[in-house]
Nucleic acid binder design. Structure first.
Lengths: 187, 187
DNA sequence: TCGCGCATGTAAGTTGTTACATGATTTA
DNA sequence: TAAATCATGTAACAACTTACATGCGCGA
């Protein structure tokens, strides 16, 4: 449901092709809304059918024509209306937490391995967000309101990763305590 | 995909009816995995067909028979195997952040209203988690490993809510600065 | 008497994932 | 020369949501 509006918001910022949008969703919007290229193309088709975006075809040699989507007045109107409605919070569904819930069936060593995996993901995510921060939002005092709000969305990503990493330390400590079976030491 | 394992994990803890499971998913598992009763009943049907749970029917008067599901050896095996596999992190999809991304189209006053809404949700969530903490995990030093891991899953919920609330303050301040148009004061 | 809790389900629709498909250009 | 990037899509499936359906007992 909100994918539609995420696309309109992205296009409102700047017209783009499906491919471009896919890149943006993977980078600057990673923090906000995830969508695969298949979903994006499908939804763009619907938006076009509904007159909320228009397409300009750009012929290219050696690859499919580029289709640049731009938001229409109708699209902007739909987006503006949606902005007024209070949206429900997204549901939490975390397989890693399911594993912790399963508790005593789980092998602490396996959980530790998985934790390290997620942790390094979180660290690199945080790094990417920091890069975006430095690239686009250097001096927040001078930003106009559009970018200021985008920055606050990014801040959400940053604080979330920090919170993840903090919790990861709590968990690591506990898991280590749960496996006193040590590797035999090399002589 | 993971709903299946969330159900097995819940049943491994204690056999239950679909109705009971729905309650548990809304309370102790709210933090971990969300699922509606329709999803739960459907998935339980599949698990039964696959021999991963068995049902005991309990006749009742005045209401439908209660069907108590219990995990089987096969179910426990499937769960154990799944626990060994590293699962991908869940995708982020937050409509409220989409709104911030839309930036200058949005009315700061409307965003503030929505923020207050979410914030009070977060506060009450945090309160509920604290209640669970006090009810089930009073003295963590003496917990066995099953409950210790469940406690760490709960800790994730608590730290996440705290992080949400911290960010909410940042955002509130910014939104207030963006609307210097004041209500006309009463004389 | 009205709504909530108990207790189960069916049906239809939307959203998201996975697999398949094509083919030139640039980079290592 | 192999892989990644550019650029678009179709098809089938799985997961999740929303609406509909039933009906008793209990407390305000």
């Amino acid at each position: 449901m909100a994918l539609k509006y995420a696309l309109l918001a992205a296009l409102q910022e700047e017209a783009a092709s499906g491919y471009d949008l896919t890149q943006r969703f993977r980078t600057r919007l990673a923090n906000v809304w995830n969508a695969s290229h298949q979903q994006i193309y499908r939804e763009l088709g619907k938006l076009e059918a509904g007159g909320q975006v228009i397409v300009e075809e750009i012929a290219q040699q050696g690859r499919p024509d580029k289709r640049i989507y731009a938001i229409t007045a109708r699209g902007r109107e739909a987006l503006t209306q949606w902005l007024e409605t209070i949206q429900p919070r997204p549901a939490t569904r975390d397989p890693f937490l399911v594993k912790l819930f399963a508790g005593d069936l789980a092998d602490p060593a396996a959980l530790l391995r998985e934790l390290e995996h997620h942790r390094s993901n979180w660290r690199s995510q945080l790094g990417q967000y920091r890069t975006i921060e430095n690239t686009y939002f250097l001096n927040p005092g001078q930003m106009d309101s559009q970018y200021r709000l985008q920055y606050l969305a990014l801040r959400r990503g940053i604080t979330a990763m920090q919170s993840n990493l903090g919790w990861a330390e709590e968990l690591e400590e506990a898991l280590k305590e749960m496996m006193p079976e040590r590797e035999p030491e090399e002589p």
